[in-house]
Amino acid sequence: MPKQLPLVDYLVLGDDPHLEAWECTSCGARFFDRRNACAKCEADEFRRARIASEGVVRAFTIVSLAAPGIAVPFVSAIVDCDGTSVRANIVNVEPTDTHVATGMKVRLVTEPIGVDDDGVEGIGFGFEPIYAAT
């Protein structure tokens, strides 16, 4: 099996892919980037916290104009994952305003972004709609 690397370090790969944030041990504020201290309470101890892999779209846009090399249109969204907001693409959906709406339920999925010259596969993530069982 080829070696894999996540697109960002807060994406945890393996049998059960999920997102992990830095959670302030003092106030519980969550962050996705490398931290110097907590922006909410100034404490400087953090633990890894698993982010819920299902959530609700709180805001979205359908991007039709982007920098060269970025495929458009794509859906960018803010997903409320059980109280933690995550920015991500909404994938596996038609990028139109009739197929995407705020309030829709979505779940985390991973997808390959490419392979580098050493054969390492890059893995990104997005959220796909959860359709009610019919």
Partner: peptide, 25 residues
């Protein structure tokens, strides 16, 4: 991308994120 994936920056990103993790435009 397409050369050598190496995590960099505060999110340890191996490639451009705009368009892959939503948008910052």
């Amino acid at each position: 991308e397409g050369k050598h994936y190496e995590p960099s920056g505060r999110y340890g990103a191996i490639a451009g994120t705009d368009g892959r993790i939503g948008t910052a435009t």
